[in-house]
């Protein structure tokens, strides 16, 4: 009898542990705050990351929406979190209707083995959430001393992969050189002698119509990279503008021709 109840208790513990294993995101304050009482659907959003990250300071990540949406509904916000980092925020991306289908790729920093969380919210206030476990072999926090001379943005790059066609999605890739100094040191603490210096935002416009806005946090890798899909309806000029924490700006532009 005792044996049986023990077994039942063990089985229950097992079931509970597996049930909660995938709900770890519920205990991450930044995620619950971003959800703001919405109940996310766990199907539809897909997150691609390597199973093993050999270099935690730059881990390729892509997130795309593969589920179904209502007519006129589009993904409006994509937020990325790395809850095991000293600061969980990685990037917030706001997408306009031109930046569809929702398919974003970037490079992130991971300080240790953890579960990365992606959250998408539609313009009709539906939320989708997905997670992915990544094993980190070299912590992204093991960086050497920052190079103070390289603290400015440099060499912005923007290119289309393939040619643009009306109503057809084309992949846009962008990169800017910047060390993305977190101001944190390997123990995860802020060091007063090192000033945080990040590229704060990237804004994309097509003929001055907003396409996409990205906010980068400490979890975004040095030389922030962003790839997204653009579905242009007409020709024009795609313009990207980066802004760092000091308020400095840099721009790059690319003609969209059919």
């Amino acid at each position: 009898m005792i044996f049986r109840s023990l077994l039942a208790a063990l089985a229950l513990m097992f079931v509970m542990s597996t049930a909660t294993a995938d709900q770890r995101w519920q205990r991450v304050e930044a995620v619950t705050q971003a959800l703001d009482n919405r109940v996310p659907e766990l199907e539809g959003l897909s997150l691609e990351l390597p199973l093993v990250a050999e270099d935690g300071s730059s881990v390729s990540l892509s997130v795309s929406f593969t589920g179904s949406l209502e007519d006129g509904e589009h993904i409006e916000k994509i937020r990325l979190f790395a809850p095991g980092n000293p600061r969980p925020e990685v990037a917030d991306i706001t997408l306009g209707p031109l930046a569809s289908p929702a398919n974003i790729a970037t490079r992130i920093r991971l300080s240790e083995t953890q579960q990365v969380v992606a959250l998408a919210i539609t313009n009709q206030d539906r939320a989708f959430l997905t997670t992915r476990d990544v094993r980190v072999t070299v912590s992204g926090c093991l960086v050497g001393g920052g190079d103070a001379s390289a603290m400015a943005m440099a060499n912005p790059r923007l290119a289309l992969a393939g040619s643009a066609r009306p109503g057809q999605p084309v992949t846009v890739r962008s990169l800017i050189n910047h060390p993305m100094e977190t101001g944190l040191r390997p123990d995860g603490q802020a060091d007063d002698s090192i000033e945080q210096q990040l590229v704060e935002s990237l804004t994309a416009t097509l003929n001055d119509e907003p396409v996409l806005t990205a906010r980068f946090f400490t979890g975004t890798s040095a030389n922030p990279y962003l790839q997204f899909q653009l579905t242009p309806e007409e020709e024009g000029e795609l313009k990207l503008a980066w802004q760092d924490q000091k308020g400095e700006q840099m721009e790059a532009s690319q003609a969209i021709k059919f």
Binding site: P50, L51, V52, E54, R135
Partner: peptide, 16 residues
């Protein structure tokens, strides 16, 4: 070291 790691973790890592 990378080579040893690749031998052990090749399904989850990429070649360098």
């Amino acid at each position: 070291g990378d080579s040893l790691q690749y031998l052990m973790l090749s399904t989850g890592t990429s070649l360098r």
